Computed example of a mutant assay.
Amino acid sequence: MDEDIVEYQADIARLMLHHIHASLAGDQYIRGVLPAPPPAEAVRIVTGPKAHAPDGLTAYEIPLDGDDLLPLSTITGILRTLHTGTHIYPSRSISSVMGMNLVRVEPATVEPADPTPEDTALTLLHALAFRDEEPKPRLLGFLLTDKDRLRLYFDTEDPSGTVAADVRTSGALTALIAALPSLITEEERLTVDDTDPHCSRVMDLTGW
């Protein structure tokens, strides 16, 4: 199988771990992520109620195109749409596997739901907390302070202690992650928040 497809399936599996215990949509949770049997290049995502109920599981097979992979957030959006309202599938799209209903999804026919604020916050936190090299600055904690606002706590070389940074989860996350190591050292951005005992100083990056 194409190496890009394999790596992408691994990314999907990591992404979906969160929804084992956090609802994907309504009472539906992620119950499994399966690589489709060869030669199909697809991923099968199993959903169902939180309480184990084998007869309540459905596997959705989403095709993967190695030349034009869907953004990970789109996969989540497709699944949320499929669990909203009533959907009628052509008979050719329905079968079964391991005792579960299997639905073959045509992504072009599904309008993905928009990411939630929690989705974007999780994307940012994963990128900061799980990196190949020892992350600098190190993420020590976080606090969701508003629908689109997140406070991040970092261990830095600042002798006064932990530094916090307020960011918007709807901002340019990739650029922010790349710039954080230098931004966090800019003294002119630092202020004191007397209401927060968990950091010595804080900077506002919500407009960055």
Rank of each mutant, 00 (worst) to 15 (best):
R31S: 12
G56E: 06
L15F: 01
L24G: 06
L17G: 08
H52F: 13
A40R: 10
T47R: 03
A13D: 08
P38A: 11
I45A: 03
A36N: 06
I30R: 04
H18G: 02
P49W: 09
L57Y: 14
A25V: 05
I30F: 06
A51S: 12
Y29L: 06
L17K: 11
L15Q: 04
G56F: 01
H21K: 12
L24N: 02
I45N: 08
P54T: 14
K50V: 14
I45W: 04
G32Y: 02
A59Q: 12
H52Q: 09
R44Q: 14
A40H: 08
E41H: 11
I30S: 13
D55F: 14
I30V: 15
Q28S: 15
Y29A: 09
A51D: 11
L17P: 00
H52R: 13
Y29F: 15
R14A: 09
P49T: 12
A40T: 04
E41T: 13
E41P: 03
A51C: 01
L17V: 11
I30K: 03
A25N: 05
P49N: 09
I20H: 13
H18E: 08
M16L: 14
I20N: 11
A13C: 02
P54A: 08
A25D: 07
D27R: 15
P38C: 01
P37E: 14
L57T: 07
L34H: 14
G26P: 10
R14G: 08
V33T: 05
G26S: 10
T47S: 11
L15V: 08
V43F: 03
H18Y: 09
T58G: 12
A51F: 00
L57C: 10
V43Y: 00
P54Q: 10
A40Q: 10
G56A: 14
L24Q: 04
P54H: 10
H19Q: 10
R14N: 08
E41V: 02
P54S: 11
P54G: 10
A42N: 06
M16E: 03
I20E: 14
H52G: 00
A51I: 02
D55E: 15
D55Y: 12
P35W: 05
A42G: 10
K50I: 13
P49L: 07
P35D: 12
Y29V: 02
T58V: 14
A36H: 02
T58I: 12
P35N: 13
S23D: 07
T58C: 13
I20D: 13
D27G: 15
V46I: 15
G48S: 07
V46Y: 01
H21C: 05
A51K: 14
G32M: 01
S23F: 04
P39N: 14
L34Q: 15
R14S: 06
G56Q: 13
A36E: 06
A36T: 10
V43N: 06
P49I: 02
H52N: 07
V46K: 03
G48T: 01
G56W: 00
L34C: 13
P35Y: 03
A36L: 01
P38V: 00
A51P: 00
L17Y: 04
Q28I: 01
L15I: 07
L15A: 13
M16V: 02
H21V: 11
D55G: 10
A40S: 14
G26A: 11
P54E: 13
R31F: 06
P54N: 09
R14I: 00
P39K: 14
G48A: 07
I45Y: 07
T47G: 11
R31H: 15
